[in-house]
Design a protein around this nucleic acid. Structure first.
Lengths: 146, 146
DNA sequence: TATAATCTCTATTAACATAGTATAGTATAC
DNA sequence: GTATACTATACTATGTTAATAGAGATTATA
């Protein structure tokens, strides 16, 4: 698994919308400011996220973006796979796969599969609700330490 | 963690030399045939592995490549890191790291760290000795199923 | 010592991915 | 009707990947 800038911005953008879930749409300029991303680049990212069904948009004067599902219904694994591709470090770790005949390749397959499984377990069981809590916790600590 | 062709060839090449550990040097042509890699590309890979201290070479007529350490003393994690870079999916998961101030970024840090840890645990505890055993096991199964 | 076999090293290339910019739209609230 | 905001596609610069090319250095051995 490798996270690109695009994927990174996507995760942060969804988190930002999760933090505003239930409220008014958030404009791209606000999101860009919150997550420190170039607006024009973020446009593409948000468009992708929309096509992926993660977010919705409202056009016009009081428009903006909002989460299309509650934060607890979106895992970070979904977003990562959608933006940055498959989790597995090498292609042959798939569902209906059986031995490919290349004995050297197959020797490593068990390792890639293990990596894939433990990684998936983490990212597929972490929702944006969890991330929102993470943020709140961090802010409380910050508040105490002033 | 993402495995490139180069990293993949490197892992297979080291495994090939592990399978011939204790014997005569293996020529690049033999390795290339065993792992099905372009010879000229493999040259660079083997040169890198040599610079990384994983393998040694003998020039001249009966030359070739050999492992510079016994198979049980080389982990696949070492080779992956050397050829394909760090295991962690994002940069800030480092030793001496502390909070960076970007609260959105830090929110995800725990996840990347977990992924990094479980992945490292797997690849850093798998040696080429293990892979050699894996191969033998596979060949025994193949022999039985004839 | 000539020579074939072998490793060494650097340069080059084509294809692709990434990160970002530019520009011309469309929709909507007021 | 106009300012605000999202939509869509094209373009570009840079870097990475996966090779290929070619000239050179080393060594066993006939």
């Amino acid at each position: 698994m490798k996270i690109t800038f695009k994927g990174d911005y996507a995760l942060k953008a969804v988190l930002d919308l999760a933090l505003h879930y239930g409220g008014a749409p958030v404009t791209i300029h606000e999101v860009a400011k919150h997550i420190d991303a170039p607006v024009k680049f973020l446009e593409q990212v948000l468009l992708d996220l929309k096509r992926g069904g993660f977010i919705e948009s409202r056009r016009g004067k009081v428009g903006g973006y909002l989460l299309s599902k509650p934060p607890e219904a979106i895992t970070i694994g979904e977003v990562i796979r959608f933006m940055d591709g498959p989790i597995e470090p090498i292609a042959c770790v798939k569902e209906g796969y059986s031995k490919c005949g290349d004995i050297y390749k197959c020797a490593f397959r068990g390792i890639w599969k293990k990596v894939f499984q433990v990684t998936s377990e983490i990212v597929d069981n972490t929702t944006f609700e969890d991330m929102v809590k993470e943020i709140s916790a961090a802010q409380n600590i910050a508040a105490y330490s002033i």
